[in-house]
Structures are given as C-alpha cells and as structure tokens.
C-alpha cells in the first residue's frame, strides 16, 4: 500500500480515537488544558514510533526464528514497558527540559492501549518496516489531533451553560460523538 495513503488514512479516515476506539483513557482524562494534551501527544508519538520499530525487529528476528509467534502479546507489552522505562531514564539524565514536559506522561503510556494496538496491527497487516514507521507516525498524529480538538472544545464547554443533566462527563462524550460524525465525513479518504 502507498505510504501517503497509510498516512492520510491513519490521521483522518481511520483515526485511532474516533474510528478505532484506541487510546481513549488519556483522551477523556487528560484533555483539560492545552499544555498537557500537546505534551501527551508528543510523548505518545515518540514512544509509538520507536516501540513499533523495536517490536518489528523483535517479531521478525526473535519470535519467528524461534517459532514462538504466539508470544507476541507478552513480548510486545514487555518491549513497550522496558522501552518506556529506558526513555524515562535517558530523558531525565540527558534532556531534563524535555523530561519536565513529557516526564509525567511517560509512566501512563505503558498502559495506553493505542501503542500496543499499533504494534499488533502492524504485524496483523504484515507491514514492511517503512510502512510500520509511517503507520505508527500517522496514528499518533491522528491521536494528537484528536487530543487538541477535544481540549479546545472542553475549554469552550467550561464557559458554556450546560444543562444539569449533561454536566460533567456526559457533555464530553456528546462532544466526542459530534466530532466523530465529522470524522465519518472523511470516510474513504486515502483509499
């Protein structure tokens, strides 16, 4: 498949949050202010792309030669956990400024279902290394886009007069539903 198609599909028509329902915990939990949603988006982008590359090598150079493909779930989650830990240690020592921005989100990322989901889909679809990277990058850009959209709307909701019945979580889900309708309009984009 064409790399550009994968990119457009993962960002818009197959958006991970609105179409595939992956990574919803930070989407509903962390979209209260712009700084944290952009920080989370950045951290997710970095970890997803790197974890996809690492898991690609783990699958094709470790699991397949030893004939233990069925261990992929365990192997991938361990890969992600170890990788996140390494990134945290590295950032803390080498780039403390970036650590300050991304640091608090890193432990949360291990249990973000989007990252495990992306690595599993990569294998399921049989993507090549290049396609894997593009797929991981596109899906995290789509995730960041969704986070930013949701934050902008939640800031508006904060100033609006919401009916008592919808106060709190319900109005947020309703807003997500309307954004999802908008994203459905992009269906078919990118083949």
């Amino acid at each position: 498949m064409n790399l550009v198609n994968i990119l457009i599909q993962t960002i818009f028509s197959q958006n991970f949050i609105f179409m595939r329902f992956l990574g919803l915990c930070p989407f509903f939990g962390l979209t209260n202010d712009m700084d944290s949603s952009i920080g989370m988006g950045g951290a997710v982008t970095f970890v997803t792309v790197m974890a996809s590359v690492v898991s690609y090598f783990v699958y094709y150079f470790v699991l397949i030669p030893f004939g233990v493909e069925y261990l992929q779930t365990i192997a991938f989650i361990l890969t992600i956990a170890v990788f996140v830990q390494l990134v945290e240690i590295y950032l803390k020592k080498m780039i403390p400024n970036l650590y300050k921005v991304m640091g608090i989100y890193l432990p949360l990322i291990t249990t973000n279902c989007m990252i495990l989901g992306v690595t599993l889909i990569n294998i399921q679809e049989g993507y090549s290394l290049m396609e894997t990277i593009v797929f991981a990058f596109g899906s995290s850009v789509g995730f960041t886009l969704a986070m930013i959209l949701m934050t902008a709307i939640r800031i508006r909701i904060g100033n609006a007069n919401v009916p008592a019945f919808f106060k709190g979580a319900p109005i947020v889900f309703l807003a997500a539903s309307f954004i999802a309708i908008a994203f459905m309009g992009l269906q078919g984009l990118g083949g």
Partner: peptide
C-alpha cells in the same frame, strides 16, 4: 445506522452516564 457506527457509541455512553448521575 448511526448507532452501530462510532459516533453512536459516544452518544449512548454519554446519555447513560447522564442518567446514572441524575
């Protein structure tokens, strides 16, 4: 058809949480 598609899921859970809160 909308209720089978993704927007319906957000809509239904939003309204159900609203009912439970109420």
């Amino acid at each position: 058809l909308m209720f089978i598609l993704p927007p319906g899921a957000f809509l239904v859970i939003g309204i159900e949480i609203g009912i439970i809160n109420h």
